[in-house]
Design a binder for these strands. Structure first.
Lengths: 338, 338
DNA sequence: TTGTAAGCGTTATCAG
DNA sequence: CTGATAACGCTTACAA
């Protein structure tokens, strides 16, 4: 049988209330004598006491649970993010409840519902489609006041968020390639209108403008995958004279680009410099190792978790509703492909 | 204010007990009249009732939480495994509580303690060092009866387990290379005595014996990383005549092997066929795409979760203690490097 | 078929 | 500084 406060109370010859006081008021010497405090603490340790969180939660209406709903768990992106989240949650004595939407809107909703069922104190939405309506989420019982959106900016949803600055990323990449001094530079953009991708393009445009590189720089629509990168590069190579530089909208595309360049008998980076975006783990295993715009995954997780914790605290204090929007900076990682 | 059973009871003009009965006995028409049943159900839906799991857990002593303690979350291996776990847990109405040991023994212990604090119904130990004593774990309040070890075989710890058959993996790889008909075949083994690695070597030896390939096959100790693979391959190339085949103890090593082969001016696979082990996601992005022994990650997760669920059921029924040991088969994935 | 009542282990309020 | 005592929302004998 598990030891409860009552048991300790009996053995210590005090009341359960006192035991509760000792075991909770951390380091606060107030309102309980040194002597009883120490006796209770000793007893608790000796008897292997473990607080019953159900009871505590039932009473206090707090679960010390933070839900994380991942849009797509197979995305290797997530590992580091989760690590970051877990790290701070652990410090703050929260537990992490994980759920996946498996890239399905419907399942996403179900996950949120589950979070509200277990009464998670806060929820982190990790990736996913950009369009979430206020009603969709709130109707499920999830409180936007303790909701953190990660990497997405839901429209009209009144929640906090953490994102990385894709505009800056695009800018840094383009700037770097411009300074590299190649005769022609091509940015391979995504066809679909994803917000991230639009931002990256925006950053690229900004750099072009700022450096007056309009005549050396061109932008081509392709798509976000290896194959798209491959075919678009074949086209590019048939029309453009090396040495040049190609900036892929993400690492997968860059992978296709590199393959196409090598298959056509040209060399990376001598003839064609290639730059990616994301810094997937595979980036540093490619040949040549891929230079790319690094997304701060760990920090993304850390920031998101710090945010929820702050939001939860705020809510518990009954303070006015607040909202934070944190944006993290990507950075350039130069390896061998440029 | 959240609606409780009491609220429903009042509005329905019945007692809370009846509401409880309706809302729990799933589909069981027993012991409550059709009429009240329907009234209560309708009311519950209308009022947006969500069961308070704390109260339920406090009463029933079940949390419907399954803890997953990951030895190292940055390992990209984990994404798929987690997906598998989550998938079945979700079906069975459990929630997944995630923790990381960050590759530290001490933190691992703390994680387990946390799991016992939140009273997880079951725990899955995902990877990590092999040597866990019975006492270490049990002392923390984790019940070995509902513990599943994944990918590790703790000594003297009376728990269930799921592993992949590394012996078979080694065998399949070696067999394949032998049949390939290269003049000489080298297995690059790990220096350290990890159980997995020993098993792989065992499998390799078995294949050699079975096919009488002793004269064509040799085994060299190196280590589990890219650099180790690289240097050992330089050695090999200076002593062995191509065409040959090299089997790395894992994909990272194989990566180093490929690099060394290419750097020495030889071709993969024409001069040197290279086979890996693990099937990391990067394997299919290498050039040439790496042939390797695939570990069934998703299934590993699925099996582990199915196991805990079964163990928990068993425990709840008060049945005698059981133990399951499942072993999954790896498979050969042939791509371009062989 | 239904209601009553007694907890489950904590915490908060109010006296002492 | 400490002790009763009453919740928190739910389940489960036991009665009716």
């Amino acid at each position: 049988m598990k030891t409860t406060m009552k048991h300790i109370a009996m053995r210590a010859g005090v009341s359960a209330a006192t035991v509760s006081r000792v075991l909770n008021d951390k380091a606060t010497a107030i309102s309980v004598s040194r002597k009883t405090r120490e006796k209770v603490q000793a007893l608790a340790r000796e008897m292997g006491y473990r607080p019953n969180l159900f009871a505590k939660s039932l009473r206090t209406n707090r679960s010390f649970l933070v839900g994380v709903v991942a849009w797509d768990l197979s995305d290797p992106f997530n590992g580091e993010v989760l690590r970051g989240i877990e790290q701070v949650l652990d410090e703050e004595d929260y537990s992490l409840l994980l759920n996946t939407a498996e890239a399905s809107r419907q399942r996403m909703l179900r996950c949120l519902e589950k979070m509200s069922n277990v009464r998670a104190d806060g929820v982190i939405l990790m990736g996913g489609p950009e369009t979430w309506g206020e009603k969709e989420i709130v109707g499920l019982g999830v409180d936007p006041q303790t909701l953190v959106l990660m990497g997405i900016r839901a429209q009209g949803l009144d929640a906090s968020s953490v994102i990385v600055d894709n505009v800056l990323g695009g800018f840094l990449g383009a700037e770097y390639l411009i300074k590299l001094g190649r005769r022609s530079i091509i940015y391979v953009a995504g066809k679909e209108k994803e917000l991230d991708m639009e931002d990256r393009l925006l950053g690229v445009r900004k750099a072009i403008g700022q450096y007056g590189a309009e005549n050396r720089f061109s932008i081509i629509d392709a798509g976000p995958g290896e194959n798209e990168g491959y075919t678009v590069t074949q086209e590019i190579l048939s029309k453009t004279q090396s040495p040049m530089a190609i900036f892929g909208l993400n690492d997968m595309t860059a992978l296709g680009i590199i393959r196409a360049v090598k298959d056509s008998g040209l060399r990376v980076p001598q003839d064609v410099a290639v730059l990616g975006f994301d810094d997937l783990s595979m980036a540093s295993y490619l040949e040549p190792r891929l230079s790319t715009v690094h997304q701060p995954r760990l920090e993304l997780g850390i920031s998101a978790a710090e945010l929820v914790v702050r939001l939860i605290d705020n809510k518990c204090k009954g303070a006015a509703k607040v909202q934070f929007h944190k944006v993290l900076n990507p950075s350039l990682v130069i390896r061998e492909s440029t």
